[in-house]
């Protein structure tokens, strides 16, 4: 067990030495990896912030249910029963007389209302569903629209749906972007490791000759790829922080103009660690592919 640890420590040390011994190459590789991870990383943070913004702006979701003008008290009772059975959340009934009274209370509306021959407003319900998911709201709206004597059901927050669809589209685009850059990262690691293997050809040949296992020969390259990826991930996190820092004040100013106290949320330690881990994982994959292919010629 201690021999196993010693060999891993030696492989890690060898990988660090190799990274350190060619500072310019290392720096360039890190920049490429860092930038490749920055774009999806920044996109993720931006979407996260947009979602926060969306949630805070939406507040409570409402569905307005308007009855037919000829609906009777009995029809209203029927709807009340159904709402109670559906147990969809809070709701309250707005009788047409009350709606008219409210309208009269609004500035400048009193005269108009007075001139009307009869009350043009229908009885209405305002429903606040417990489940605010856009899909659930849509299902509820369709169901209610099929009830008797219901003239119109209006989702008061159709824009929430649109915003949600936009977020979903953006998330998909982000995933595609991330996949492309991940492939790029693997390719960059593949190439640097291939060059490493070529540079270490003499050592690999000798080590093979004197009884080195495949694992012994591969290990330093795996560590190299993973370390390079992890460092690239940390660099990307640094770039995202820098971008957020630069954007923080203008965003604050803009939000203030709309009377909001919205502030950009920065990635937490878990997200930074995840970015580094992602970089390490992709670097490890690149190293694995590269070493498997490059070492064939030593057989």
């Amino acid at each position: 067990m201690s021999a196993w640890f010693a060999q891993h420590r030696a492989a890690l040390a060898a990988a660090l030495r190799r990274l350190w011994s060619t500072p310019l190459n290392t720096l360039l590789s890190l920049l490429v990896i860092g930038i490749a991870l920055t774009l999806p990383g920044f996109g993720y943070v931006a979407l996260d912030n947009l979602r926060d913004l969306g949630n805070s702006a939406t507040g409570v979701q409402q569905i307005s249910l308007f009855m037919n003008l000829d609906a009777s008290r009995k029809d209203v009772g029927e709807i009340e029963n159904r709402l109670r059975q559906a147990a969809t959340g809070k709701w309250h009934f707005v009788p047409k007389e009350e709606a008219l009274k409210r309208m009269q209370a609004s500035e400048g509306m009193a005269e108009i209302v007075a001139s009307l021959p009869r009350n043009p407003l229908p009885d209405a319900f305002v429903i606040e569903p417990t489940n605010g998911e856009p899909e659930a709201l849509e299902i509820l709206r369709k169901e209610i629209a099929g009830w008797p004597k219901v003239a119109h059901v209006q989702l008061d927050s159709a824009w929430v749906k649109r915003f949600d669809a936009f977020l979903r589209l953006a998330r998909l685009a982000l995933w595609m972007l991330a996949a492309i850059f991940a492939a790029g990262l693997v390719a960059v690691t593949f190439n640097t490791i291939r060059l490493q293997v070529m540079a270490q050809a003499a050592e690999i040949e000798v080590a093979r000759m004197i009884g080195a296992t495949d694992a012994f020969i591969r290990r330093p390259f795996y560590y190299y790829g993973a370390l390079q990826g992890a460092l690239g991930g940390l660099l990307a996190a640094g770039l995202v922080f820098a971008a957020l820092h630069l954007l923080g004040e203008p965003v604050g100013n803009l939000a203030a103009l709309y009377g909001s106290s919205f502030a950009l949320r920065e990635p937490g330690p878990v997200e930074v660690a995840a970015l580094a881990a992602l970089g390490a994982f992709l670097g490890w994959i690149g190293a694995q592919l590269s070493v498997s292919l490059s070492l064939r010629k030593f057989d």
Binding site: A202, E203, E205, M209, G211
Partner: peptide, 19 residues
């Protein structure tokens, strides 16, 4: 590899590592 560890191999070009 494990068989080779019980052998000492010496070549005409010594295959030393010059770094």
């Amino acid at each position: 590899p494990y068989v080779r560890r019980h052998l000492g191999l010496i070549f005409q070009d010594q295959k030393l590592l010059f770094d």
